[in-house]
Design a protein around this nucleic acid. Structure first.
Lengths: 229, 229
DNA sequence: TCTTTGATGACTGTCGACAATAGTTATTTA
DNA sequence: TAAATAACTATTGTCGACAGTCATCAAAGA
C-alpha cells in the first residue's frame, strides 16, 4: 500500500503529535479501503513510508487497537480488523440500540439545531446521490448519524458510538459493490426521518431510525452473501 | 502514591508485555482508589517507581486514554479521568441502555449458563455482605453485570460496555462513603433479577435491571450531593 | 517418512538519549 | 511599577539501537 512518503508532514504548523497524525492517516487509509481486513501492518515498513521512527507508529496502533480498528497480537504483529458476517451484523444491531437512545434524547431537548444540521447533510446527499460517489455518500451517511448522536449531548454515549462509525464505514466501502443502486432509497429514508423529527413524533422517529439502520445492515450483508466477505 | 517498586516483575514467566502489565497496574490503582480524579500522572515518575523505561508507560497510558480512564493532553500531561456530576450520571443511563439490550439477548438464547454464573456471584455477595467490604462488593456487582453482558454473546456490545465497568467501579469507590448501608438492598435486587430471568419473564427482567442500574446511580449521586464529588 | 532440534531472519518490545514544548521565574525596558 | 521578554526547569515527544520473541527451514535422528 502507499500512504505517500512523508505525507504526514504537510501543513505541520501546530504541534499536533505525530502519533495522532499517523492514527488519522491509518483511519483514512481504512475508510478509503486502502487497507484490507486481516492485512498485516508492519511497523518498520510504515515508519519508513512516513519517514518517521517506530515509536509514534506503535502508539498510534495501540490507540487504534482500543477503537477496535486493528488487532495487536503481542510479539507477533498488528492486523487490520477482520470481522466476519456476525461481527458486521453486530455493528448494526448495536448502532440501532445506541441511536434509539440518542434520538430519544435529541427529541427531548436539543432538536432545533440538530434538525438544521441534518437538513444541511441531506442537501449534500441529494447532490452526491446524482454523482453516484459511494465513498462520499458513506461519509455523509456517517455524518448524518453522528449529528444525531452528538445532538444527544451525552459524552459516554458518543464515546461508545464513535468506534462503530469507522468500522461500519470501513465495511461499507470494503464490502458493498453496488451501493449506488440503493442511494436514492437511503436518501429517502433520511428525509422521512427528519420530517418525523420535525413533527415531534418520538416513537415513530425511533422506529424509523431503527429500521433504517437494520435495513442498511441487511442490505450490506446481502452483498456479502453474493460476493463473500 | 505507591505502586510498589518493581512490582510488575513478579511472576514474569510468560511474555506478557510490560505495557499490559502497567495498564493493569494503573487500572488496579484506579479501582482501589489509589488515584484521585484529575490527578496528574507523570511518566518518568511512574517509570522509576516501576523500574522500567518510559516507552511502555506511554503506551499503557494511550491505551487507557482510549478507554476513557485517563486524559492525555499533548505536550502537557496525563490526568486521571475527572467526571462531573453529569458525567457520572451518564455512566448509568448508558449502562441501562446497553444492559437492557444485553439481557434481552441473554434471555433469547444463552440463559442456562448465564444464570448458573449469576447464582455463583450471588452466593459470594451474600458472604461479602456480612463483612461489609464495599470494595469487594463493588467488584462482585461489576462481575454480575459483566456476566450478563458477556452472556449476550455480542462482541461489539461488550467492547462498548467494558470501559464503563472501570469507570463506575472507580466512582463507586471514590464517591460512595456509605455503600455498606445499602448492601442488603443491592443484593436483594440481584436475587430478584435472577429469579425473574429464571421464570423467563423478559419484559419484567428488562424493567428490573434498568431500574436497578438507575437506582444504583441515584444512590451514588446522592452521596455526591451530600459530600461533593 | 516423520519428528525433533537448532540455526537464521524478520519483526516486535524496551531502553536511554535527545529534541520540542509549556510553565515559571528572572530580567529588561518603558 | 508594570508589561514584555528572556532564561530556566520540568515534562512530554521522537529517535536510533539493542534485546526478546516468533516463524521458517534445514539438518539430524528415530
Amino acid at each position: 500500500m502507499d500512504y505517500g512518503a512523508n505525507s504526514v508532514w504537510k501543513e505541520l504548523g501546530r504541534p499536533k503529535s505525530l502519533r495522532q497524525q499517523v492514527a488519522d492517516q491509518i483511519i483514512n487509509a481504512l475508510a478509503l479501503g486502502h487497507l484490507k481486513p486481516g492485512q498485516r501492518i508492519v511497523e518498520l515498513e510504515l515508519a519508513q513510508n512516513l519517514g518517521i521512527s517506530r515509536a509514534p507508529i506503535r502508539e498510534a496502533l495501540i490507540q487504534l487497537e482500543q477503537e477496535g480498528l486493528v488487532h495487536v497480537v503481542p510479539y507477533k504483529g498488528t492486523y487490520v480488523m477482520d470481522l466476519n458476517y456476525t461481527g458486521v451484523w453486530e455493528l448494526y444491531t448495536l448502532r440501532a440500540v445506541l441511536e434509539e437512545f440518542a434520538i430519544r434524547r435529541v427529541m427531548e431537548s436539543n432538536i432545533r439545531d440538530t434538525i438544521t444540521s441534518l437538513w444541511d447533510i441531506y442537501d449534500k446527499m441529494i447532490e452526491v446521490c446524482n454523482t453516484g460517489n459511494k465513498l462520499q455518500m458513506a461519509e455523509l451517511d456517517s455524518k448524518f448519524h453522528e449529528i444525531i448522536v452528538r445532538g444527544a449531548d451525552h459524552e459516554q454515549l458518543y464515546r461508545a458510538w464513535y468506534p462503530l462509525k469507522y468500522k461500519y464505514m470501513f465495511y461499507t466501502i470494503t464490502i458493498d459493490k453496488n451501493y449506488s443502486s440503493s442511494l436514492e432509497i437511503v436518501v429517502k429514508m433520511h428525509e422521512k426521518l427528519i420530517e418525523t423529527m420535525e413533527n415531534g413524533e418520538v416513537e415513530k422517529a425511533v422506529e424509523e431510525i431503527k429500521s433504517h439502520i437494520i435495513e442498511t445492515g441487511k442490505l450490506l450483508l446481502s452483498q456479502v452473501a453474493d460476493h463473500g466477505i
